[in-house]
């Protein structure tokens, strides 16, 4: 069966073609290649013009800048808007629109936004001299003149730039420079946050590889001595099992059992026995069997014994 294609797949292929009329409709909706290419790669003359404008602007700023600015007013405000959009203007150059909660501190020249949950869009007037920073538990975003948004949810902190540029430092340590129309998501920084992200991805139907990637980061940051560590391994066990990777699933099950964790112990032990038997790992099955409660041990004991007997009888 596994040496040749299943005829049902051939039939599926015949019913999912890209027909010429569909391709034509798709082409009509696309911008012309020339438009897209132009919008992405401006000719060098444009860059030269932009460079000259920038140099002139810098020169003007050096000559005309105010020599003694008055000390800025300190800022301290709680930002909260649920089910609607809140708006706030900081000084003359910064505008915030938000749905969620956080707070702002610092002053009009150096606002510091601490964002906890939801979405916040920020507009900073270019060349205004404002040094703005947005911090979430997962990331720090620094900016001088741009329009961008920061959204924090179960998946992490999502930074999206509309115009200008921002630098993003994820709490994990990675730095990212984002330009117009670029975005980056910083993963949650805590094991609990990573578990929440993995569960959200799994529930949303994300590919198991993506969920397992998040779980691996979480498992690297916490051990099996914590309940969250056990939950991370347990979800990885379930996903590897669904993805038909019994060896990997068994490794997670045995790791939980060997750590002596009591959380989900019966379910893990039962899974370990089944997985080990399916891969012919009689020792793994015995380890799972030992962790099962007595009634279930009796039910599995004969099968595990048979596994050992068969293994001994094989050459």
């Amino acid at each position: 069966m596994s040496d040749r294609p299943d005829p049902r797949l051939q039939s599926f292929a015949e019913h999912t073609p890209a027909r010429p009329d569909e391709i034509a409709a798709l082409r009509r909706q696309l911008p012309s290649p020339v438009e897209v290419a132009r919008s992405t790669r401006p000719p060098r003359r444009t860059w030269m013009l932009a460079g000259a404008t920038l140099a002139a602007g810098l020169l003007g700023w050096v000559v005309l800048r105010p020599t003694a600015a008055p000390p800025p007013e300190p800022l301290s405000a709680v930002l909260t808007a649920q089910g609607g959009t809140g708006e706030l203007t900081l000084g003359a150059h910064v505008r915030l629109e938000y749905t969620g909660s956080g707070r702002v501190e610092g002053d009009a020249a150096r606002p510091r936004v601490h964002w906890e949950r939801g979405r916040i869009a920020l507009t900073v007037e270019p060349r205004s001299g404002v040094d703005l920073e947005v911090r979430t538990p997962d990331a720090a975003v620094a900016v001088t003149g741009t329009r961008f948004s920061v959204e924090r949810d179960l998946l992490g902190t999502h930074v999206s730039v509309e115009r200008g540029s921002v630098s993003v430092r994820c709490v994990g340590g990675s730095d990212h420079a984002l330009g117009p129309e670029q975005a980056h998501t910083c993963l949650p920084a805590t094991p609990g946050g990573l578990l929440a992200r993995a569960r959200a991805l799994d529930e949303a139907g994300a590919p198991s590889e993506e969920v397992l990637e998040t779980l691996a980061v979480g498992m690297a940051t916490t051990g099996l001595d914590s309940p969250i560590g056990v939950e991370l391994h347990f979800l990885a066990l379930s996903l590897e099992r669904q993805a038909d990777n019994p060896e990997a699933a068994l490794a997670h099950a045995l790791a939980i059992l060997r750590a002596g964790a009591s959380l989900r112990r019966d379910a893990v032990a039962s899974a370990a026995v089944e997985l080990a038997l399916s891969t012919g790992d009689c020792d793994g099955a015995a380890e799972g069997l030992a962790a099962l409660p007595a009634p279930q041990q009796d039910a599995w004991a004969t099968t595990v014994d048979a596994c050992h007997t068969q293994a001994l009888s094989e050459p």
């Binding site: 299943d6 005829p7 049902r8 039939s11 015949e14 019913h15």
Partner: peptide, 11 residues
């Protein structure tokens, strides 16, 4: 069940 001579139908 899949069979090699299953009619493919369609276009």
């Amino acid at each position: 069940p899949a069979t090699a001579d299953e009619p493919s139908g369609g276009e």
